[in-house]
Simulated assay, not measured.
Amino acid sequence: MSAFALSVILVSPKTPGNIGSAARAMKNMGAAELRIVAPRCNVLDSEALAFSVHAEDLIRSAPIFDTLEEALADLDFAMGTTARQHHDLPEQIFPSEARPLLKAFQKVGIVFGREESGLTTEELARCQAIIRIPTSDYASLNLAQAVLLCCYELLQADRSSGAAPVVTEEAPEIAPREQMERFYTQLEEFILKVQYTDHPRVKHKMRQFRKIFDQARMNEDQIRMLRGLWAQALWAAKTKKFVVED
């Protein structure tokens, strides 16, 4: 048995100091890897390295991605963070409530958005859980504070009470996010071609479908079955091979 590995993904961080402080918070709590998406500053700026203190290795080894989709591609499960309500996304949960969900996974990511605006709805839709840190009416947290709190709850909170850390026993072979995104691309094309919805409403419908299929935690064989079904349905419609019975 082995504990899950937690990657912290920062989307478009604006200041080097925030990157360094976030890396330090990760190191304090034992997070495995830092990933950065479309940074708006020099990740290796002297300020970032200085603020990281003894976590400089996390910054120097952090892969840089152009898109969030690329950053999530090889993970089993991703959690997005937000302080705003989104009615067509998964119900928000607290970091402590997310911990039991992680027993089924080995490679887990938690995503933090831009300092001034957070994650977009479309970025949150690519995550399988939505995390909200409980606060008073004033919900604005510094990026490093948010990273520290979430990493503590996900990695260290159980240990302080004497309980064993979260581990995986026989983790199912859940399809990586890269395959799930190809699955969703084909699904979107399918529902448009069969006129289940139209272009103005397709993004909303896809967020609803993501909630359904992400909860199913499908493996690669199950994804292939559904993609084959949709491809066959389109072929049958195109060639008028449908058999309709009363």
Results as ranks from 00 to 15, higher is better:
66 D>F: 05
49 L>N: 04
19 I>T: 06
17 G>I: 12
94 F>L: 12
245 E>R: 07
20 G>E: 12
201 R>N: 15
193 K>F: 03
10 L>W: 00
238 K>Y: 05
205 K>M: 13
67 T>F: 03
41 C>M: 04
82 T>P: 01
145 Q>F: 09
117 S>E: 12
7 S>F: 02
111 V>Y: 02
235 W>G: 00
211 K>E: 03
172 P>T: 11
175 A>F: 03
189 E>D: 13
221 D>P: 03
215 Q>D: 09
125 A>P: 05
153 E>C: 15
69 E>Y: 08
199 H>M: 12
7 S>P: 06
183 F>D: 00
242 F>T: 09
243 V>D: 11
45 D>R: 10
213 F>K: 10
99 R>E: 13
133 I>S: 13
131 I>H: 04
54 H>W: 08
196 Y>W: 11
37 V>C: 14
242 F>W: 10
8 V>L: 03
66 D>A: 14
231 A>W: 10
197 T>R: 04
171 A>M: 11
86 H>M: 09
92 Q>K: 10
20 G>W: 12
220 E>K: 06
21 S>I: 09
131 I>N: 02
218 M>K: 06
160 S>H: 12
115 E>D: 06
16 P>L: 02
183 F>N: 03
49 L>Y: 02
160 S>D: 09
95 P>E: 03
211 K>M: 11
64 I>R: 14
127 C>S: 11
194 V>W: 06
223 I>A: 01
139 A>C: 10
187 L>K: 08
91 E>Y: 13
99 R>A: 14
79 M>D: 01
243 V>L: 14
10 L>A: 01
131 I>V: 15
136 S>P: 01
95 P>V: 00
229 L>V: 09
95 P>Y: 02
124 L>F: 08
125 A>Q: 06
9 I>Y: 00
146 A>G: 11
51 F>E: 02
174 I>F: 04
183 F>P: 02
66 D>L: 08
140 S>D: 13
193 K>V: 10
5 A>Q: 14
27 K>H: 15
154 L>G: 07
149 L>P: 02
213 F>A: 04
174 I>L: 04
211 K>D: 01
15 T>S: 06
88 D>T: 10
186 Q>N: 06
63 P>Y: 11
239 T>Y: 08
168 T>N: 14
95 P>C: 04
50 A>I: 15
198 D>L: 14
174 I>C: 04
180 M>S: 01
48 A>D: 03
178 E>L: 07
233 A>G: 12
191 I>F: 04
231 A>H: 14
170 E>Y: 08
90 P>F: 04
39 P>D: 02
210 R>S: 05
206 M>F: 08
116 E>Q: 12
36 I>D: 00
164 A>Q: 08
113 G>I: 00
2 S>E: 13
141 L>T: 15
69 E>A: 15
147 V>L: 06
18 N>D: 15
82 T>G: 00
234 L>R: 05
24 R>V: 08
58 L>M: 06
137 D>M: 02
36 I>W: 01
183 F>Y: 10
182 R>Q: 13
20 G>C: 13
233 A>K: 01
139 A>F: 05
237 A>M: 13
147 V>S: 04
92 Q>F: 01
25 A>G: 06
